[in-house]
Design a protein around this nucleic acid. Structure first.
Lengths: 209, 209, 209, 209
DNA sequence: CATGAATGAGTATTCATTCAT
DNA sequence: AATGAATGAATACTCATTCAT
């Protein structure tokens, strides 16, 4: 009847369900936090029975991992859409802030979920396993960018890439957690951070080359 | 740690009991998070019956408020011990970082508890009422210090005090949340932040170039 | 009594379960009163887990309402089984006493439960909402019957329908509450009440003197 | 110092406390019912510690008995104040209704407490032992009065004294339990009851001898 | 007599998970 | 794949009662 011969016909329904479950779980985490997350609420939001939920995602632990994976996928996809290899360091750093603005202001949900899971990761190593790589990758990107910028003289020569990766990541997360997440506040925050790492003596600053 | 004189465990004055309860609750929040906090566990750690716990602290809500108060007291006391009115802006900012180093490295418990409560504050207005004033006071201290420094030329004239208060607070919290909380990392972080806000053209600043 | 087919105790349809729960609750109210009613006891008597009880009837409040409904249904059904529209006033009043004899003597449980709930209704408006309509309907039936009887000359012309509704209802309830609930006592009580309202000068009345 | 040489100097303080406790307990029973009665609430109302309450009244059971005794004393005192031996039957019956009017309308508290305890008496034999004699005495007074009235021709010759004692007591209790306890309703109720038992053929009715 | 502190035995309710259909 | 019913283990909170002072 509706046996369309699409390639992923067989696994699609299950994957759709899992995606819907992840989506509902994320929304509920935003509303009530991980500790307020109830399997019954998720099932209800998806429109299925709790037992059915457990058929697709056997335990609550697996559910949290599913949410972590969904974040991973989202962030990876987002990063991929903007090819950046041909840009220079300052431009790429600027892109990081633009990327983050999008996450923080237009889809604040994702960052809140990420933040919640990070908090849990400290105590739950399964969540840690699913979510920490994400953070490490983000941090690593920044460290490398900063190091490259220092080497090329675009960023301050005495700048400590590790410390600044911490400062930037923390500030971004701190911004997302703050109650006043408006565009203007973000703009000023991003501007301050970029100004602080820039090499004041660099030729790039006022005029390029 | 909880080896209080075992013989005369009973009949402790209420204030002592409440202090012991707050202490136990803080330790358990560090171990299991606010959501993993169980009245039974606290009672057990204090060495009293659950009913006795409820005698001293009627509800879990009141318990969280008690923890918040204990943080408040601790932070206030700490701030008071170092008189700072006669110091100049740079010295006072330096003292903030020294204060924080103590909190972050020597009593990391407090910051983790603070961080947990902040997370809960977003959804629980009673926790918010108990913990947010603490954060606001800290942030305000920084904003004023930064503004004063800008005005007196010690800090960069184009520095945005609000944005930098966010950066500093976020970095401190981010440091406490990170898994590698060693003294060296903190020192580098603090140094970078202080260097970033300093006015490079100030007379006080060390000669550059 | 609670020897329901023991083999297929599980998987009963919800309505059956709710009926069984109402039944068990009523029996326990008779034994221990509403204040001695424990969810665990009910579950045990029905042969289910306490959690299962809460699956079918979410709160104790809902449980009391369920009991009230079950009384309502029982009384309504009973009243319906005896068509009485074609009877005259005296016959219908007599039927009321016959109906009540059945309730009071053959199923004394129901009246005790009713009495218990009435007592609680004074302080608990949710119980009141569930049980008072039942009492009002009963009382109203009597008031109308009495009024009709007065108008048609079957009952004493100087009889106050409201006062007598109170007397009759109170006497019936009082009888059920008394420790000696035998048929003879009831018969004499009902006879006295009917004689007291009858018009001694009515043509229908047996010749007097 | 205040060792006044009054006769009951020694026992007075304790008895006063017990009286105050009984008083507070009765007020609380009216407010919340026996099932809502809490030792702590009583202690608080009396202005003493719970432990002190238990010093004066060792258990909750003893407390209920104390309340029952206090009712007993009150009702006995009240009955004694009106000497009635020299009155005729009709006058004495009228006095019963007047007595009850006072209890029901001016001190409704007592009847509600009595009603509550009667309800408990069915299941708690210690309460029964304390409260049932009270009811029996009341009922017995009525039975004897009715019998005497029948014998002397003042009440209907075919009247069943037992049944009518039930009717009268039930109606009085029913009145107290009803939500509309106004004087007019009581007057009509009492009038109907008295009219119903009066001998219509008695010489006393219209003109006395 | 009085009390602050302590406690055992409850008490309704919650929740992830399981199972028969 | 889906579901209604069922459940064990928890969980915060209550209350009459006790005890040391």
């Amino acid at each position: 009847m509706n046996q369309i011969a699409s390639i992923e016909r067989r696994r699609a329904p299950t994957d759709d369900r899992r995606a819907a479950i992840a989506e509902a779980a994320r929304a509920l985490i935003v509303e009530k936090g991980v500790e307020g997350l109830r399997t019954r609420d998720i099932a209800e939001r998806v429109g299925i029975n709790v037992a059915t939920l457990h058929y697709h995602v056997p335990t609550k632990e697996a559910l949290i991992e599913l949410v972590a994976e969904s974040l991973q996928t989202q962030f990876r996809d987002q990063h991929v859409t903007r090819p950046r290899r041909h840009l220079d360091v300052a431009e790429r750093m600027a892109l990081e802030f633009i990327d983050f603005r999008e996450v923080a202001l237009e889809r604040p949900q994702a960052m809140l979920v990420f933040s919640e899971l990070m908090e849990r990761a400290r105590r739950d190593e399964r969540i840690a396993a699913a979510i920490l790589p994400l953070k490490r990758r983000w941090r690593q990107t920044l460290v490398e960018l900063l190091r490259e910028g220092v080497d090329s003289g675009v960023f301050r020569p005495d700048l400590d890439p590790d410390a600044w990766a911490t400062i930037i990541v923390s500030s971004m997360v701190g911004f997302c957690r703050s109650p006043h997440k408006d565009a203007d506040t973000y703009t000023r925050l991003a501007a301050e951070l970029q100004r602080a790492i820039r090499n004041p003596n660099s030729a790039n600053a006022p005029a390029k080359d």
